[in-house]
Structures are given as C-alpha cells and as structure tokens.
Amino acid sequence: MAISLSKGQKVDLTKGNPGLTKVIVGLGWDVNKYDGGQDFDLDSSIFLLGDNGKVASDGDFVFYNNPTGGNGSVVHSGDNRTGAGEGDDEQVVIDLQAVPATTQRITFTITIHDGEARNQNFGQVSNSYVRILNEQNNEELIRYDLGEDFSIETALVVGELYRHNNEWKFSAIGSGYQGGLAALATDFGLQVG
C-alpha cells in the first residue's frame, strides 16, 4: 500500500523496500477550464544535484530534449504536450544503484512551457501529483498530491529523492516559483540564455 505524503514530509524509500533498485517516478496534472485560447503544455524536468545543491554540468538537467542523465541512470519518458487522459502524464525511470556517487539529490519539477507569455499559471492547474512505483511490478510505493494552493506560479518543485546513510529517501516539497523553467535552472546552477 502506498504511503501518502503531505507537503514537507519525508519518507524512507529503499530502507522500507529491501531489494528495490529501479523506480518509476510518475508525474501528473489536469488543466482547469479557462478561456485564454492557448493550449497548456506542462513539462517535467529533473535536476541531478551535488552536495552544493547545484548541477555539475548541463548533462545533469534531464528533460524532453535531454532525456537521459546520470550516466544513463535517469531516463525521461518524453514530452506529453496535452496532459489529456488518466494516469501519469510523464514518467522518469531511475536505476538507484547506478546514480553517480556525486549526485546527492534528484529533484523533480513541473513547469508551464511559455507560461508567462501565455498568461498561464498553476492556479489554472489541478490534481498535480508525483508518485513513485517499483519498476519491477508497478506497485505504487509513495504518492504526494500537491493540492490547490498555487496561483501565479509557473514552476513547481514537487519533490526529491535524496541520499541519507546509504539509503534513498523521498521529500515532498511542493514549492512554487515564478519565472518558469529559466528561474529554476538558474537556481540549480545552469547558465540560461
């Protein structure tokens, strides 16, 4: 049975699931009805961070145009441009044992493509969640529903996997940002522009 988290909670992933080596991280969302005339395109991105909370290189930024990172240990399933339908909108497969030792945290984000230009924000998005599945049997282990407490933000840090005493844990973050993906990328040490 999946552990359901609230914002700010942390939970052991590998300690409570002995033998777990590969996980699927599923991210999902729905767009509320609005009359802006533009389609929403939400994107998940992953930042592989060192001790300093920054990426070591552009290769540590995993998204639809760079779907593999961490020496192949993190693989993005690709861009879902509509968010239509049930279930996960985008997925990331992670081989926990193969993540480079220099990566201490794997941070998951959702951003609205061209959100500022299209006057779109997370106040118009609902049912956002992140969940972690055992890759071997698709069993849902952890789920974090973000709730509806966003308004003008165009980027969200939903959560992160992090190392602690040679185990992996998950932290439910749920922090919103303005400035979209560029603001997040800059915060995590990428040169944008």
Rank of each mutant, 00 (worst) to 15 (best):
S45M: 11
V99D: 11
D145K: 08
E167K: 13
V23Q: 07
R131P: 00
D58V: 13
V25E: 11
G72S: 09
G123W: 05
N17D: 06
G180M: 10
K15L: 09
G37T: 07
D114P: 06
V31E: 02
R143I: 04
I106W: 07
T109N: 08
G78P: 02
S175A: 15
N134V: 01
R143F: 08
D51H: 14
V99Y: 12
A182G: 07
N32H: 03
A84K: 09
H164Y: 11
D60W: 05
L181E: 09
R105C: 04
G28N: 04
R118C: 07
L42N: 10
Q91N: 11
D51F: 13
L42V: 10
V99I: 09
E140W: 07
L156V: 00
E135T: 06
A155R: 04
D51P: 15
S45W: 13
S4L: 14
G72I: 10
E148A: 06
D88R: 01
N32M: 13
N134H: 14
G87S: 05
K33Q: 13
K15P: 13
V130M: 15
S128N: 14
D95N: 14
F40E: 12
K33W: 03
D58Y: 14
I173P: 00
L48G: 05
K33S: 14
A101P: 09
Y162A: 02
E86N: 12
D35Y: 14
V74Y: 03
G189T: 03
E140M: 13
L161N: 03
G37P: 13
L48E: 06
G147E: 12
K54W: 01
F61Y: 15
Q124G: 05
R131M: 03
T82I: 02
A182D: 13
L141G: 04
N52A: 06
K22Y: 06
D41T: 09
K22S: 12
V23Y: 07
G59W: 05
Q178H: 08
R81M: 10
L49F: 11
S6V: 09
N165R: 12
T107G: 11
D145A: 06
T102W: 11
S77M: 08
G85M: 02
L161P: 00
L96D: 05
L184E: 02
G78M: 01
I132Q: 07
T186Y: 11
L181N: 04
G69W: 01
N80K: 02
V11W: 01
G87M: 04
L184M: 03
T14H: 04
